[in-house]
Amino acid sequence: MTRAEKRQAFWERNRKSGGYLLKKKIGQWLFSLGRAILIFGLCFLILQPLLQKLCVSFMAEIDLYDNTITSVPRHFSTISFGNAWRQFKGIKTFIRSLWLAVGVAGLQMLSCTLVGYGFARFKFPLKKFLFGCVILMLIVPPTTIITPLYLYFGNFDIFGIIGAITGTHKGLNLQGLAIPYLLMCATCAGYKAGLYIYMMRQHFRNEPKELEEAAYVDGCGRLRTFFQILLPGARPMMVSCFLFAFVWQWTDQIYTRVFFPTAKWDLVSTKLLNIGNLFDGENKAKYGVAYVTPQAYMNQVMATGTLIALVPLLVIYIVAQRSFVESISQSGIKG
């Protein structure tokens, strides 16, 4: 059918329906248009700070002091990338941060999946009370417990067991090591672990009971049922948990500041937080103590540093976005 024929057929149908078809078509079209405008506007709203940073990072120093330049640089330059990269102390910082984030996120994901399943599917005494404890853990602001935790890991001991083994009657000093925080993650006490437990529990609760009943009837044990029947269905939710944990570890400043002090650990997040001061220090070393780095120049390094620290997250995000959102509907026997 050619286009003209199609058009003719449309008008014919429209005449038969008494103008209803045309009205409906126009309504649909207007709805799509309105939606497109809304979506575009909100997308721009979210991307604007990122675009702004990108523009600023490509400006030459002279552009930064020019009030007439707000977005597109007049003198193109990539010097700020070098400036920012030096403050991170190179690729090693990134690799270290990456390993730490993967470890933290993996441990959190595994422990929270187990615990979430336990809460969702088994009846045991004190269950309600324990779940109340999960919520409690979720809402305790980290600042409340961070100081005691720090002191605790300076002299780490579980009911005097470690002291008895080593024979010194003193705990281990774990300050500045990665073990304390990894231990916390493995026991569901890491940053926002309560949220992951909640998410996994909610997921398993919405899973149909028939899945497990069928497995039990077929002679599957509880562990095997969990690993073979329920885990494959829970994968999208686990990926979500992992990604959240990864991102929040990468950008975390609350726990990182205390557990991974800058003296011993070069991490992306702590470097980024101090990038302005580091840059200032570098300039002072170069031009003498009296030199004061201009505020705008310092801010440019901050913007560029933010972009550099964002790149790994963006890559992971773009790669995993599909499994993040789309696959949720394809899991299990839903739909």
Binding site: F119, I145, T147, Y152
Partner: peptide, 26 residues
Amino acid sequence: AIAGFLFVLPFIIGFLLFLVYPLGMS
């Protein structure tokens, strides 16, 4: 009940060691 407890055990340990204890101190 036993299976449920075992599944939830990591949380119980973490809760006691890394939340109740520091909360008490604070």
